[in-house]
C-alpha cells in the first residue's frame, strides 16, 4: 500500500509521518502521532468529539483526510495548556463541573476555543451555536455553556494566564 509522507505542525511542534491512502486525521493523530486527545465517537462527522483546529478553524478529524493537513497547523486539546498552566477554558470546565464521563470534553474544548478565538465576548446563544455540532450524552450542556461563558469573562478581564 503506497503511503504518503506529510509534514505538519501539531500543537506547535513539527511532525512528519506517513499516512495511508484515505486515512483520516483522527486515526493519523491517535495511532500515527500518539496524540490521544481527540476521540473516536462516530467516524461520520456527527458527534464532534474528534474536533480539532486546522489552521485555526474547527474541523472534525474523523472526516478530514489526513494528507490534506500537509503544511497546516493542527491544534488539539493536548496542546491547549501552556506548559503546566491550564488554559482558562480547561480551568473553567474543571471549576464548573462541565465534564462527567469526559469523552466529549476534548471536542467541546476545541469548539469553545474556536469560538473564543473569533469572538471574545460571546452571548449565551453564540455559545449554544458554537457547540451545536458537539454531542454530550451525560447531558451536561448547561454546565458546559456556563463554563465557556465564565472562561470568556475571565479571559476578557485577565487575558491568558
Amino acid at each position: 500500500m503506497a503511503k504518503t509522507p506529510i509534514a505538519f505542525s501539531l500543537n506547535g511542534m513539527e511532525r512528519s509521518m506517513f499516512v495511508d491512502p484515505g486515512q483520516n486525521l483522527l486515526d493519523a493523530l491517535r495511532r500515527g502521532v500518539g496524540d490521544l486527545s481527540p476521540k473516536y465517537g462516530c467516524a461520520q462527522g456527527t458527534c464532534g468529539t474528534c474536533s480539532v483546529l486546522v489552521d485555526g478553524k474547527l474541523q472534525l478529524a474523523c472526516i478530514t483526510l489526513a494528507e490534506a493537513v500537509a503544511g497546516s497547523s493542527v491544534t488539539t486539546t493536548a496542546g491547549l495548556a501552556d506548559g503546566s498552566e491550564l488554559h482558562p477554558l480547561q480551568r473553567s470546565f474543571m471549576d464548573n463541573f462541565a465534564a462527567q464521563c469526559g469523552y466529549c470534553t476534548p471536542g467541546m474544548l476545541m469548539a469553545a476555543k474556536a469560538l473564543l478565538d473569533r469572538n471574545p465576548s460571546p452571548q449565551r446563544q453564540d455559545v449554544v451555536e458554537a457547540i451545536s455540532g458537539n454531542l454530550c450524552r451525560c447531558t451536561g450542556y448547561e454546565p458546559i455553556i456556563d463554563a465557556i461563558l465564565k472562561a470568556a469573562a475571565f479571559m476578557r478581564t485577565r487575558g491568558r494566564p
Partner: peptide, 21 residues
C-alpha cells in the same frame, strides 16, 4: 470538503477505488 466521502471511506461502503482532490 470530504464530509460525505470520508464517512463512506470510514465505513468501508464506497463504490470507488480512487479519490480525486
Amino acid at each position: 470538503g470530504g464530509t460525505l466521502v470520508m464517512r463512506d471511506l470510514n465505513y468501508g461502503s464506497y463504490g470507488f477505488e480512487r479519490l480525486v482532490r
